[in-house]
Computed example of a mutant assay.
Amino acid sequence: MAATTTSAAAAEFARRQHSPLQRVQHQLHGRPWLSPLFLLFVAFLAFFIATPTFLTANSMGILLQQTAVVAALAVGQTLVILTAGIDLSVGAIMVLSMMVMASLSRDGGMPGILALLIGIVLATAAGALNGFLVTRINLPPFIVTLGTLSIFTAIALLYSGGESIQANHLPDLLNFLGDGFSLFGISLTWGIVVVILIYLVVGFVLAQTAWGRYVYAVGDDRESARLSGVASKRVLLAVYTLAGFIYGLAAWVLIGRAGAATPNAVPDANLQSITAVVIGGTSLFGGRGRLIGTAIGALIVQTLQFGLSQMGVDQQWRVLATGILVIVAVAVDQWIRKVKA
Rank of each mutant, 00 (worst) to 15 (best):
A3T: 03
A3N: 13
T5L: 11
T5A: 13
T6G: 05
T6S: 07
A8Q: 06
A8C: 00
A9S: 10
A11N: 05
F13S: 02
A14M: 02
R15M: 01
L21P: 00
R23M: 06
Q25T: 01
L28K: 08
F41R: 03
A43T: 05
P52A: 06
P52L: 09
F54V: 04
T56L: 10
N58R: 14
N58Q: 14
M60D: 03
M60K: 09
L63E: 01
V69Y: 04
A71D: 08
A74Q: 02
A74L: 06
T78M: 15
V80Y: 09
V80R: 08
V80W: 09
G85A: 09
L88Q: 06
V90C: 07
I93V: 14
M94H: 00
L96S: 10
M101Q: 10
R106N: 13
G108E: 13
M110C: 11
I113W: 15
A115M: 13
L116A: 12
G119I: 04
G119K: 06
I120M: 07
V121F: 15
V121A: 15
G127H: 02
V134Y: 03
L139I: 15
T145P: 09
L146T: 07
L149T: 10
S150M: 15
I155E: 12
G161A: 09
G180K: 08
G180I: 07
F181H: 10
F184S: 13
W190K: 08
L197M: 14
L197C: 12
F204W: 15
A210K: 15
R213S: 06
Y216Q: 11
Y216T: 08
V218N: 09
V218D: 05
G219P: 07
R222N: 09
A225E: 11
R226G: 10
S228I: 11
G229P: 09
L242M: 15
V253C: 11
L254T: 03
R257V: 01
R257N: 14
A260I: 00
A260T: 05
A261D: 01
T262E: 07
N264F: 05
P267F: 07
P267K: 07
Q272K: 14
I274P: 01
T275S: 11
I279K: 01
G280D: 02
T282C: 12
S283F: 03
G286H: 01
G287Y: 03
T294R: 04
T294M: 02
A295Y: 02
F306P: 00
G307Y: 00
S309R: 05
Q310S: 00
M311D: 00
V313L: 03
A321G: 11
T322K: 13
V332G: 02
Q334R: 14
V339Y: 06
